[in-house]
């Protein structure tokens, strides 16, 4: 690790609550170690603000290992910033240059209202999954785990889809604020497995209906979501979702 320190200008979105208008504030932070993560740099900014008697910037974060999906910053015009295949917490300051100005905004989408500063309300994602993003089994009384062999390829592909962390970068990136990549990942994961096949059609219909109801836009297949997805969820899942949805609509 070759540690350096850099100085930065930050333009950060500040918004007191959902009803407020919000505006950018400009801050200087100096001596940021390039080994720090982006959120550790935000910690330094907040420590500075607190010491100056100001309110720190509110942002969501928890595991800081790229898996909980809580962090959600729009950095220099990109969801989770310039690096690929990681959420904000795994972005490191070595990706930035000394003297750079960095713009930090919250996710902006109809389905995700701002709560405060960089925090948004993503409960719509929970609601979509409640509409059918599961297999209907109760605890207990299920067959032995090895009773139904599953081809390795199917299990691996299901795992690719299941890797979604529900952060919402796909929605924040999409010009229509569509949640199709998110929805398709769950539909696809479960449709690929024999256990999930049974309810596949109903699941697709119900989840899409809920997504539409909650104000997410249409998918126009630009592929921007796939590029910004921190887990590399593939557009191929959207194609599978469309197939499930179409056959379900025909047979419904």
């Amino acid at each position: 690790m070759s540690t350096k320190t850099i100085n930065l200008t930050l333009k950060v979105w500040r918004q007191n609550g959902p009803q407020n208008k919000g505006q950018f504030e400009t801050y200087q932070v100096s001596n940021v170690s390039t080994d720090s993560s982006f959120l550790e740099m935000m910690d330094v900014l907040n420590e500075q603000l607190i010491n100056e008697g100001k309110e720190p910037v509110a942002f969501d974060h928890d595991c800081r290992e790229g898996i909980c999906g809580m962090c959600s910053m729009y950095i220099n015009g990109r969801a989770h910033g310039p690096d690929r295949l990681i959420p904000t917490c795994q972005l490191h300051m070595r990706k930035f240059k000394d003297g750079e100005t960095i713009t930090v905004e919250p996710w902006r989408a109809n389905g995700f209202p701002v709560i405060k500063d960089l925090m948004v309300d993503r409960s719509a994602f929970d609601k979509i999954l409640q509409a059918g993003g599961f297999i209907s089994v109760n605890t207990g009384g299920v067959p032995d785990a090895n009773a139904i062999p599953i081809p390795k390829e199917a299990a691996d592909e299901a795992m690719d889809a299941a890797a979604c962390i529900g952060c919402g970068a796909c929605v924040a990136t999409c010009k229509n604020s569509s949640a199709m990549l998110f929805v398709s990942a769950k539909v696809s994961q479960l449709a690929l497995l024999p256990q999930g096949k049974v309810e596949a059609k109903r699941r697709a219909l119900n989840m899409i209906a809920k997504m539409d109801e909650l104000g997410f836009g249409n998918c126009s297949n630009t592929g921007a979501c796939e590029i910004e997805c921190p887990k590399g969820i593939s557009l191929a899942h959207i194609a599978r979702l469309n197939r499930e949805f179409l056959t379900a609509s025909f047979t419904a």
Binding site: I135, T139, A145, P151, K152, A155, D156, A158, L193
Partner: peptide
């Protein structure tokens, strides 16, 4: 058993078993 029934994609070998 419960996890498999819920659709958890546990690692499998080429024979399709866990």
């Amino acid at each position: 058993d419960q996890g498999v029934a819920q659709g958890i994609p546990f690692a499998r070998d080429y024979g399709g078993l866990l």
